[in-house]
Amino acid sequence: MTYQAINTAPAPSLIRRFRFKAPLLVTLGLAWLALMALTAICADLVRPYEVTQMDLSARLAAPLTPGHLLGTDDLGRDVLSRLIQSIRVSLVIAFGATILSAVFGTLLGFLAAQFRGTLEHLILVLADFQAALPFLILSLAVLAFFGSSMMLLIGLMGFYGWERYARISRGLAISAGAQGYAAAVVQLGATPVRVYLRHILPNVASTLIVSMTLTFPEIILMESGLSFLGLGVQPPQSSLGNMVGFGREYLTRAPWIMLAPSFIIMMTTLSISLVGDWLRDKLDPTIR
């Protein structure tokens, strides 16, 4: 009963339920995410130095050195500036990839629900295949053999988790098709594209958004893992993961090179998980 009510509720109530009654940890998480987003957008303005600017007289300077708040790395490059740039790169990749995989997965799920039969089986078999190989290993194979470029990396990461959206959207679309409203608009002569985009999508959007909050931190972790192994973002570009990877060489002498990006990765994924959990409690009708 509540399920029905939520599914057919008009949009304003969705926003009203949303109003700020968030617990402290969630508020902190949101604040952190806002800070990260702001950093990523304004990276060029807030960065004190150029990313590649070297200062060989101040190599491996400790944090809080005047002029280098977070110290410098082995070539005397400012860690804070590199960190800010890395936040931008990592967030852009994760954001782009999350959108890609959501759109791609949802599209396949809707196609499976619309045409059923062979196409549906094919999509489910592909989902099985995706589940049969750890994504890290799949990407290792692809990246190492095609070389690493930013577009390929985003494209590759965009395959992460598509099967989850496909399964969800297929299931929801099939059950929506059995409900009155979808049948009604079909009877009124709406094209399938219109039915899916205007009528079914808004009704399944909340569940899909929740899955996006689950995939986003996983993509950040996947990209930083690949970059850590030296197969993701390539120098002179830097991402959070490849900063950790390079910092590893100086673990004993200059641990701050590795600690700063690690801290950002942990705080960001933690914040998204907290906010995502809270969103799921708010939005997902299936767990009420």
């Binding site: 931190p217 972790l221 930083s224 893992g225 850590f228 993961g241 950790v244 990877g245 590893r248 673990l251 004993t252 641990p255 590795m258 690690s262 990765i265 942990m266 994924t269 933690l270 998980s273 907290l274």
Partner: peptide
């Protein structure tokens, strides 16, 4: 448990090395 699965394994590994080995 939230901490456990949000810490990437390479960060965890390096932190452990930093504390217990270095």
């Amino acid at each position: 448990s939230i901490f456990g699965f949000t810490i990437p394994s390479f960060v965890m590994g390096l932190l452990l090395v930093l504390v217990f080995a270095v």
